[in-house]
Design a protein around this nucleic acid. Structure first.
Lengths: 135, 135
DNA sequence: TATAACCCTAAAGTAATCTTTAGAGTCAAC
DNA sequence: GTTGACTCTAAAGATTACTTTAGGGTTATA
């Protein structure tokens, strides 16, 4: 199955110019073209886009993704490098998840504080209530 | 206890220009100055910086943070608004954590794949192995 | 075969978050 | 009271990830 850039845009939620931009940046290692120059997206390209989104969420820069995609292009000879890259990526992601969970816990406590404060109508009062809860 | 901008920079890991930038953007609602114009950071300001970092991790824009900080400045009258703001913030964070966890799961599976592929020295072979594991 | 809806490129523009630079004042310690 | 390390501002610059624009070809369909 193959898709036009517009279809892929609709399927992925990425804009057409963004898809072109990713292609230009070398993030779609095997993207084919028609004779006219039109891009022809395959399932493989959709998978690459999924990976890009995954990398993006982890906070990875386009340049790093490009580096990875260029290794993909080079084939089996880069498998060990790609393994190392992914090990690092997973590590980064794990750290990010855990620091985000911390931020969430912190935010939840602050939310509780604001629930009390909004109810009391006063921060000063909320502080007192908080103190008494702890003591 | 009060701190110079350099000390705060060392304590928080944020650069001195970044701290000045945050101040300029209105993210430090109660930052005091000496007569000379030098910034004087208090524990409260450190707490604000902690909050900024927390917001930043959630992907919040400076402008939104500024909006929140300006509510803080206005005092008790904005408590309900701030509560609503925080409810939304926690929701955003929860969504972010869960989508990041998905990305992590996806990445871990891909990592396993690369472990097999790197070991086998061939992606084609790894695909076969994968197939046989599933069937 | 006309036409509307698509596709292309190159280049400029935008928004966000900082960083750097230049020029000048402040402060603490010897 | 001098000096070296610090502080300030304003403005320009850098980087990243796109988006927009301009000008022009392609394709499906009525």
């Amino acid at each position: 199955m193959s898709y036009t850039i517009k279809k892929v845009s609709e399927m992925t939620g990425l804009s057409v110019p963004t898809l072109r931009y990713y292609d230009r940046e070398g993030l779609l290692p095997d993207l084919q073209r028609k004779e006219s120059g039109y891009r022809v997206f395959s399932e493989q390209d959709l998978y690459a886009i999924e990976l890009i989104e995954c990398f993006k969420q982890a906070g990875m820069k386009i340049k790093e993704m490009k580096q990875f995609m260029s290794m993909v292009k080079q084939g089996d000879s880069t498998l060990k490098e790609r393994l190392a890259f992914f090990q690092n990526h997973v590590k980064q992601l794990e750290e990010k998840v855990s620091s985000l969970q911390n931020a969430l816990e912190h935010s939840k406590r602050t939310l509780e504080y604001y629930e009390i404060a909004a109810e009391a109508g006063s921060e000063a009062l909320a502080h007192e209530i908080y103190q008494s809860l702890v003591k």
